[in-house]
């Protein structure tokens, strides 16, 4: 028996919008720790890891570990039927091949349930060890989204370079080149507007912009984003979900031949 009640149902709607472009089908794993997902895009270039901790739910019952295969486009269709203020409850019985999403309006005058068929998905789980990153950049998520969007109108790839001067995003294409430098800026009115660079050593890596643009679908989940970079490792782009967990995207760099 699984029953997860999330008062801030809009979070779940935003999570689906954040991952459905990158991943088509995925297994949602439910355990005492929380509601999680790890999935790669079809070309295995990018990976998304989601965690919604059990403590973040108003009610969390998960009698045994359960993995539920879902088509994310279909989940998104179901969740789009929930109002933005609705409380969302996810329910499944042991051994059942369906999951139910229940939507309650804030004043309880409308209750809807949507039952969706589960599917068998052969997904590979990758072990991602904790790593020390050479540089971690924290910046406003809207600013990062803007940079990725702007650069992708010029080129297909971006070189992200971190030095003690700041973080530089560079691209080149048929019509020309572009460089955007963001300097560390801690002296802002609100902490979420700061750009903070923690650098152990300078690092420079090249990435495909279309994946980074896809990651920025998570922008509504968090006002800030952190970008962790190391030579010879995928970049980690993390959006924290207030008090509950995170959506982390991993993107393999371009490798010099």
């Amino acid at each position: 028996m699984l029953e997860l009640r999330l008062v801030q149902g809009s979070l779940l709607k935003k999570v689906l919008e954040a991952i459905k472009e990158l991943v088509t089908d995925a297994n949602f794993d439910c355990s005492a720790t929380g509601f999680s997902l790890q999935a790669m895009d079809s070309s295995h270039v990018a990976l998304v890891a989601l965690l919604l901790r059990s403590e973040g739910f108003e009610h969390y019952r998960c009698d045994r570990n359960l993995s539920m295969g879902m088509n994310l486009g279909n989940v998104s269709k179901m969740l789009r039927c929930a109002g933005s203020d609705d409380i969302i409850t996810i329910k499944a019985d042991d051994g059942s091949d369906t999951v139910t999403f229940m939507f309650e309006s804030p004043n309880q005058d409308k209750i809807a349930d949507f039952e969706m068929k589960l599917m068998d998905i052969d997904s590979e789980h990758l072990g991602i060890p904790d790593a020390e990153y050479q540089a971690i950049v924290r910046m406003p998520s809207g600013e990062f989204a803007r940079i990725c969007k702007d650069l992708s109108s010029i080129g297909d790839t971006v070189i992200i370079s971190v030095t003690k001067e700041g973080v530089k995003f560079s691209t080149a294409g048929d019509i020309g080149t572009a460089n955007i430098v963001c300097r560390q800026n801690k002296t802002v009115d609100k902490p979420e507007e700061a750009t903070v660079i923690e650098m152990q050593e300078p690092v420079s890596l090249t990435f495909a912009l279309r994946y980074l643009n896809s990651f920025t679908k998570a922008t509504p989940l968090s006002e800030t984003v952190s970008i962790s970079l190391s030579s010879d490792l995928p970049v980690v782009v993390e959006y924290k979900i207030a008090d509950m967990g995170y959506v982390r995207y991993y993107l393999a760099p371009k490798i010099e031949e």
């Binding site: 790669m40 789980h125 990758l126």
Partner: peptide, 14 residues
């Protein structure tokens, strides 16, 4: 020239 890496170049299946 550069080639696009994949997750398998960096992480092991578990």
């Amino acid at each position: 020239d550069s080639i696009q890496g994949t997750m398998y170049d960096f992480y092991e299946k578990c």
